[in-house]
Design a protein around this nucleic acid. Structure first.
Length: 815
DNA sequence: AGCACGCCGACT
DNA sequence: GTCGGCGTGCTC
């Protein structure tokens, strides 16, 4: 007897077994969607992962209700990929399913039923419920599952439906159940019968009493005769504002014109001219040869290209080759805002072969891309991490741009997978190649390259041999002692900025902290303003004049006096980007100073407006957070200043120094892109710090040697594997006890030095949930697989304790 | 995840 | 007396 293992869109471990009814056993395949009953009355869209003949023993199996696809919607590569993801990242298949599928492809109980046309119903054999159902369907034709509850007891619904389906009396309406509808565009044309009729004058004279209608008719006629090949969009006719529906309708009624519809893609494709890619420069050609060699040896590539070295140019070249071989390309980016530039370059060449996929698309747009990929109608897909789940037919190359970016593994949305690492595995299932590209590769990728797990290709020269910016360190302590400062700026730095302004160049100032002041503290009693939902101090935002929690988003007004002792001595501590912006505006009152951070960019088109201002050189100085390190490719930025560089280093995170290096290098890449005279000034209390010294020397391999040595010394990745288990509950004692228990279970199976904690998370309470975490430091290699199995056993043992089931538990593999 | 069941305190 | 809070158990 055939059974199917089915994945349901629920956060539950594993797959569920269903019996396959005889009628569909010949057509059902892995990767198809099916409707199945689950629990009391719910119906879900599941995905067939496996078909087998093993009769399950410990439970009563239910039957698959129906199949939704006539061929698999998921290719087998995706099934392998999902299985790998769920094993490697210790997450449930259901979570992956939810994340991977546009929601209109996952129907739930909103499923409609209807009577089978031509069904001859024998009422004699029906029971009461079946009778009700058939009668209701005769009256209403279509009924969704929820409505059926009105006349049939919940527990009998599934039984009734199944038996009526068995009798071939009713069926599930797939056209209705598919929530997705193609977008249709209205077109108009002159009624064809008229065109053969030469007597247009008579027709026109009939319209004399309705001049507007006549005008409209003539307008459509002239469009049509001017350009007989072109279809006339209805919206274009109305666009000029001359005509309204009230002129249109009578013409339709008189059968002078016709209206018709054409299905259209929701996402507009580029229809302009396509052009060829320019030739590669000599250093780029060299890199290309190295990439080709690596690919021939079956190796993937880490392309380390300094800022403005033209990595994109190389990508384009490899994309072209891949397309010519008849294969498809996936181009991954950490975030949508970066798609613009790459798109502009690609769409000129590939036009409609190009597709996009990211979190900002509407559900219907996603389905459209999904289908085009399935039909092999898109050769190049540009997208963010969720684009890994599209049903590619023939993938040949994956490019992971800005591979170091932490947006590839956000901690907010489950499943918690790293898109960069997953891309390497995913590509393998298709026998495709991967290029990881960055100007500042992650330490982990660099290490893989050292071990030749990835081929390291270094593009050490800016395009056109433009010089990299020069670095200067300013000792702020010394400047302070000799009184050569003004606020947060040394006089020397002010001088540098002034010089740059005099030369009519633009300056970027990086300060990676939002808000105006980090803390508002009462000088008299020491009171600080905490968020009421989180264990976090509120940040003062002067521009919005409010206190904000950067974690839960709570806002409060700024207190004028201390809420506790009513003292007016409120002290603002901790410098935010707003304060730096204010300071710079005061130092350079005659110049245009703009701020760029999430708070100032929140308004619609704020980013676009500022972008234009910078491009038109209306802005002289841009003060911003890490946001300014991405995408600001302008020709006249010559100076990058980092007044408080130390703030980036002293963060409680073993990657803090790596992040600081990446951020500084990325921002510095904005300077002197054309002139080669770029300069970066770093102000620090600690100019002797290795990170600053190594950046200044610009000896890339030494920087990575330094990072790797530090990581090895303190047993951090890539020398160990980290798994972090975070537990949350609104009652502190409960989550504390639970985490202690899980800690003890883990220690039972794993060596003592592998388990750290539990301890309170850095933010002990977030959104009113108390948080505790356990860190697992596991060895690499074979041992890791072994230990991870033990972790899984521990987690299962923990889950068996019913008292702890209300605890939210997140597992982060490779934190 | 969702839903039913069952146990306790706050109400008409 | 009942309504509804949420802790617990279960789903192929």
């Amino acid at each position: 007897m055939p059974y199917a293992q089915i994945v349901l869109p629920l956060n539950l471990r594993g797959t569920f077994t269903y019996r396959i009814p005889d009628e569909i056993v010949s057509v059902i395949q892995a990767g198809m969607r099916v409707l199945v009953p689950f629990g009391g009355k719910k119906i879900y869209t599941g995905i067939v992962f496996e078909i087998h003949n093993q009769t399950p023993e410990n439970f009563v199996v239910k039957e698959v209700i129906s199949i939704l696809d006539d061929q698999p919607i998921l290719p087998s590569e995706q099934i392998h990929f999902w299985n790998w993801l769920s094993e490697y990242y210790l997450c449930n298949l259901g979570e992956i399913y939810r994340f991977a599928f546009p929601s209109s492809l996952k129907l739930e109980s909103e499923t409609y039923l209807k009577l089978k046309p031509n069904a001859v119903i024998d009422f004699e054999i029906l029971d009461v419920n079946e009778m009700y159902m058939v009668q209701a369907l005769e009256v209403r034709q279509l009924i969704n599952l929820t409505d059926i509850e009105a006349f049939i007891p919940k527990k009998d619904i599934i039984k009734t439906i199944n038996s009526l389906i068995d009798l071939q009396y009713i069926e599930i309406d797939e056209k209705i159940t598919e929530k997705y509808k193609a977008k249709e565009v209205a077109y108009v044309k002159i009624n064809e019968k008229l065109l053969s009729n030469e007597n247009l004058t008579i027709i026109l004279s009939k319209l004399d009493k309705a001049p507007k209608q006549k005008e409209l008719f003539l307008s459509i006629l002239s469009r049509q005769s001017d350009n007989p090949e072109n279809f006339i969009k209805k919206s274009d006719v109305f666009a000029e504002g001359h005509f309204a529906q009230s002129h249109f309708k009578p013409l339709l009624d008189k059968e002078l014109i016709e209206e018709y519809y054409i299905q259209k893609d929701r996402i507009e494709s580029y229809n302009g001219e396509t052009e060829e890619i320019e030739d590669l420069s000599e250093p780029q050609k060299q890199s290309k040869i190295e990439i080709d060699e690596a690919f021939n040896e079956g190796k993937n590539v880490l392309l380390h290209g300094v800022t403005s070295s033209g990595k994109t140019h190389l990508y384009l070249d490899k994309i072209e080759e891949c397309i010519n071989e008849g294969k498809n390309v996936l181009f991954l980016l950490p975030e949508i805002s970066l798609t613009k530039q790459i798109t502009q370059r690609l769409e000129k060449k590939y036009g409609r072969q190009l597709g996009f996929y990211h979190q900002k698309l509407t559900d219907f747009e996603r389905v459209e891309v999904w289908r085009r990929i399935k039909q092999n109608d898109i050769q190049i897909l540009i997208g963010t991490r969720n684009a890994l789940f599209l049903p590619y037919q023939n993938l040949g190359l994956i490019i992971v741009d800005e591979e170091h970016d932490s947006a590839y593994k956000p901690r907010e949305v489950s499943p918690y997978f790293n898109a960069k690492d997953s891309a390497l595995v995913f590509a393998n299932f298709y026998d495709a190649k991967v290029i990881l590209g960055s100007a500042t590769p992650s330490v982990e990728s660099y290490y893989l390259a050292q071990k030749d797990k990835l081929r390291y290709v270094f593009l050490n020269e800016r395009f056109g041999n433009v010089k990299l910016p020069e670095f200067e360190l300013i000792d702020f302590k010394e400047a302070q002692d000799s009184k050569k400062i003004s606020g947060n700026f040394s006089l020397k730095l002010i001088e540098e900025i002034k010089k740059n302004l005099d030369e009519k160049n633009q300056t970027i100032i990086l300060h990676n902290r939002r808000g105006y002041a980090n803390v508002v503290e009462c000088e008299t009693c020491g009171y600080v303003n905490y968020c009421s939902n989180c264990d976090v101090v509120l940040t003062y935002h002067k521009a919005a004049n409010e206190m904000k929690c950067h974690y839960c988003g709570q806002r409060a007004s700024k207190p004028k006096t201390c809420p506790k002792c009513h003292s007016e001595n409120l002290n603002e501590r901790g410098v935010g980007v707003e304060q730096i912006h204010e300071e710079v505006s005061k130092i350079f009152p005659d110049n245009e100073v703009d701020r760029m951070d999430v708070d100032s960019m929140r308004k619609k088109f704020a980013y676009e407006k500022l972008y234009e201002k910078i491009e038109d050189r209306e802005t002289d100085i841009i003060v911003g957070t890490q946001m300014i390190s991405k995408g600001l490719d302008f020709d006249h930025i010559e100076l990058v200043a980092i007044p408080k560089a130390d703030s980036m280093l002293y963060v409680q995170d073993f990657r803090a120094e790596e992040r600081a290096y990446q951020l500084i290098t990325q921002v510095s890449g904005r300077a002197g892109r054309v002139s080669g005279n770029g300069k970066v000034v770093i102000q620090t209390f600690n100019p002797g710090h290795s990170v600053f010294q190594l950046i200044k020397m610009n000896e890339v391999s030494k920087i990575y040697e330094y990072f790797l040595k530090e990581r090895q010394k303190f047993h951090y990745p890539p020398f160990t594997k980290l798994i972090m288990i975070e537990m949350k509950h609104r009652r502190e004692d409960k989550v504390n006890r639970a985490s202690q228990f899980l800690g003890s279970v883990l220690r039972k199976y794993l060596p003592e030095d592998c388990v750290l904690g539990p301890e309170k998370s850095q933010i002990a309470r977030l959104n009113n949930l108390y948080q505790f975490q356990i860190m697992l430091k596991l060895p690499r290699g074979k041992k890791y697989e072994e230990f991870k199995k033990l972790v899984l056993i521990s987690l299962k043992e923990f889950e068996e304790i019913t008292a702890y089931q209300s605890i939210k538990k997140d597992v982060f593999v490779d934190i």
